[in-house]
Design a protein around this nucleic acid. Structure first.
Length: 755
DNA sequence: AACCTGACTTAGTATACCCCAC
DNA sequence: GTGGGGTATACTAAGTCAGGTT
């Protein structure tokens, strides 16, 4: 119920939410989205199919358009200009209908420049509630890490009573514990680097000293054993090593949906043939005649065997991995040991794009040292390339944060090795991001009233800009850069919306001026939403869509560069994505305020937190595939609920009986029995309620991913303050990794922090 | 102004891992 | 001890945005 209120309060309606509100009693999503999706397949599946179809039409159209452009670019351009000019007139007509506002508008336009002063940053004092925390940490240096071990030990002890020969084990363990503790101590000391208490420099220099061991390269290809064969046209065929390697990439993916897709197959086969020897190429002409099944089985078996490995073997493997982590996983940055995020080069394989990606199945080549640029201090020990190899380049650029880079062959873009989110370099940037968002809080009202005013501007450009900004602000849409056609999946953001992505309803379900959005956003995640908008926005959209084809840009006079330049003028550091951060964080703060009940127990408070978190995830459209095990675990939960209900009924019957007993006997004993039954009943009721809440929570979370917003959009200080204020242990909302990433916030925010 | 590119953040999914009930 | 279910981590694709070049 609370959640529905939230949504209403925000004055907008992500469609799903509204449907839920309409359904009232029904907690699960119902309504149109599902009606529309007739089959039982998952919504996303449907979405994709639909999108694919749409995509094809679009693409054909757009292709045509492009061809036209190529044929006669000038002609097209002129035509477009003509359209624009005539459009330019139209706003004036509209203004007339809006009456006397013209004058006001002029004034506001003149005032537009007042924005200059907005940039003044509300200086927020760096408070330091650090004292207490620091003390805590020095007192129990390895408490956090140890506690886990300890609990393990306790558990073990319980079991050990049965078996007696535990001593040796224990000894080993305690020794190991000691070692670990020592190591942890060392680590802890390093990770205790409180960079946030140091002076910040803002000169673009990211480090003074940077030392590391370079990337860890993917292990070389191991040829298949002789008895694992590839068949062509029914006959076994020995492949050259390079060809075989690529075949294994495909074979490994055989039971993945990807390999059923035509583009995937075509791309794969094309790239594979390129790498074949000429004899192989002569022979292998059709993918359908290739039989990878034996290879596939080999890998499946191998994986299983690895899973079934005895303990010691597994232990060994782990130790090896730890060694690698130890050697390549850390670097020295300005005298501090920092964890690296991705210290391994990406292994070769087949490219798995998301959504309807034109390049899926292409061969991702093996990265060699000769492809890699190393970035490190001048005077430090330069990382050794693997034996017999050389680096592409070693440079010393302290204005960037990466340690190594290479160019990837699919999109021809650069990939980097960078630090872990817990590092100073990442943390500082993160902190700064939220500070920018907080500055936006101070000027957002002004910006809002300005874009409202701009809805009536005589300039088409301004109108488009202001409507787009309205969407970005209200719906937390992404900016929407242009993308190269045919290089990536066809997805859009705000500025790249096309006419086909929205539908206008002057009236829908009792609401006026409803815009229906339906498009694929980042990662080809569908954005579907029906939003009532203000009348001028609606009118503007009608205007923008006039005389356009479905495949035309909705905001043809706007792109992200123009928009961001404007935003930069409004506030220093402002760009489109800041609105997402701002709206996400402010929503969390408001929701927490509205939902948290100080008298609740921790579990209930956590539920409130999750609900607030979920409100943000919904706002940002963070989705996930319904977990594979969802149905099952839901059933399990339902079974539990049913069992509880039964128990409850039984308890009721028993209570009645006890009451009758009491009436008959009227002795102390039966009175006590009644009390006991009453208590039991209460307890059961409470448990049932809890289970029901759990089920609701689960259902609501089915397709919503909370992690992304938690990690990237919610100022951690809001959460930290909330925890401190309501006595919720921080571990309940942030796991170990998250606590490391947000160490700065955990340390600096007190319960009074306001975003 | 269009175009390109480098650097960095944000994103969902696959897999590893851990814990608990059996 | 095992299996399964849920969470944490690894992985890498896909965005944003600004600065430079044409």
């Amino acid at each position: 119920v609370g959640e529905d209120e939230i949504q209403r309060e925000r004055g907008e309606a992500r469609m799903k939410e509204r449907d839920r509100a309409e359904g009232k009693a029904k907690p699960a999503r119902t309504g149109e989205e599902e009606n529309k999706m007739s089959s039982k397949d998952t919504e996303r599946e449907q979405t994709k199919v639909k999108a694919n179809k749409a995509g094809k039409n679009q693409k054909e159209k757009r292709q045509e358009k492009r061809e036209e452009k190529v044929k006669d670019p000038k002609n097209k351009r002129e035509k477009r200009e003509g359209e624009r000019n005539s459009e330019e007139e139209r706003p004036k007509e509209n203004q007339r209908t809006k009456g006397e506002k013209e004058i006001k508008e002029e004034r506001e336009e003149g005032d537009g420049q007042e924005g200059e002063g907005w940039g003044s940053e509300p200086k927020q004092a760096k408070k330091k509630p650090k004292e207490r925390k620091a003390k805590d940490e020095t007192k129990h240096p390895e408490k956090g890490r140890k506690s886990k071990e300890k609990s393990k030990e306790v558990a073990n002890e319980g079991g050990a009573k049965k078996r007696k020969s535990k001593e040796e084990d224990d000894k080993k363990k305690s020794k190991k514990l000691k070692e670990e503790a020592e190591e942890n101590k060392k680590k802890e000391e390093d990770s205790k680097w409180k960079w946030w208490e140091e002076e910040k420099t803002d000169d673009g220099v990211k480090w003074k000293q940077l030392e590391h061991n370079g990337p860890y390269f993917a292990p070389p290809y191991e040829p298949l054993p002789d008895d694992v064969r590839f068949y062509y046209d029914g006959k076994p065929m020995k492949l050259s090593m390079a060809t075989e390697e690529i075949a294994t990439f495909y074979a490994k993916m055989l039971d993945h949906e990807y390999t059923t897709k035509e583009i995937f197959q075509t791309n794969f086969f094309h790239d594979w043939r390129k790498e074949m020897t000429s004899e192989e190429r002569k022979k292998i002409k059709h993918l359908e005649k290739c039989d990878f099944k034996e290879i596939h089985k080999y890998f499946v078996d191998r994986n299983e065997a690895r899973k079934a490995l005895p303990k010691e073997e597994k232990q060994k493997l782990k130790e090896e991995a730890d060694k690698i982590q130890e050697e390549f996983g850390y670097c020295n940055l300005d005298g501090h040991r920092e964890k690296i995020g991705n210290f391994k080069t990406e292994p070769p394989g087949l490219f798995r794009g998301r959504g309807d990606h034109p390049k899926m199945g292409m061969l991702k080549k093996r990265i060699m040292p000769e492809d890699v640029i190393i970035n490190c201090s001048k005077d430090c020990k330069i990382p050794e390339p693997p034996l017999g190899h050389k680096w592409k380049e070693v440079r010393c650029d302290n204005t960037v944060t990466w340690l190594a880079s290479w160019t990837e062959n699919i999109q021809n873009s650069i990939k980097y090795i960078m630090l872990n989110p817990s590092s100073k370099l990442k943390g500082e940037k993160d902190w700064q991001k939220y500070e920018v968002a907080r500055r936006l809080k101070g000027v957002v009202d002004k910006i809002r009233s300005q874009y409202r005013a701009d809805w009536k501007s005589r300039e088409m450009k301004k109108r488009q800009r202001s409507v787009a900004l309205y969407f970005i602000d209200k719906l937390a849409l992404r900016a929407g850069n242009e993308k190269e056609e045919g290089e990536t999946a066809d997805t859009v953001g705000c500025c790249s919306l096309r006419v086909e992505h929205i539908k206008l309803h002057s009236e829908l379900d009792g609401q006026e001026h409803v815009v229906e959005f339906d498009f694929l956003g980042k990662d080809s995640i569908r954005y579907y939403n029906k939003v009532p908008v203000e009348k001028p926005v609606f009118k503007n959209l009608q205007l923008f869509m006039e005389n356009k084809d479905p495949g035309d840009d909705l905001f043809d006079r706007l792109n992200t560069t123009v928009l961001n330049k404007h935003l930069q003028d409004l506030m220093d550091g402002l760009s489109a994505k800041v609105f997402r951060t701002y709206n996400a964080s402010i929503t969390l703060q408001e929701q927490l305020k509205a939902l948290t009940n100080a008298d609740d127990n921790v579990a209930a408070k956590l539920l409130s937190y999750n609900r607030a978190n979920r409100a943000v995830a919904i706002l940002c459209n963070h989705q996930r595939a319904t977990p594979k095990t969802f149905e099952k675990s839901m059933q399990n939960l339902q079974a539990k609920i049913d069992a509880k209900k039964e128990q409850l009924e039984e308890a009721q019957v028993e209570l009645k009986r006890a009451k009758a007993d009491l009436k008959a006997k009227k002795d102390v004993k039966s009175k006590a029995a009644v009390e006991k039954k009453k208590k039991l009943l209460e307890k059961l009721e409470e448990q049932l309620l809890k289970l029901n809440v759990q089920a609701t929570d689960k259902e609501e979370n089915k397709q919503i991913a909370l992690g992304t917003s938690k990690l990237n959009y919610l100022d951690p200080r809001i959460s930290v303050a909330w925890c401190k204020k309501f006595g919720v242990p921080i571990e309940k909302i942030y796991n170990k990794t998250q606590r490391e990433k947000f160490a700065w916030a955990i340390d600096m925010a007190d319960e009074n922090f306001e975003f």
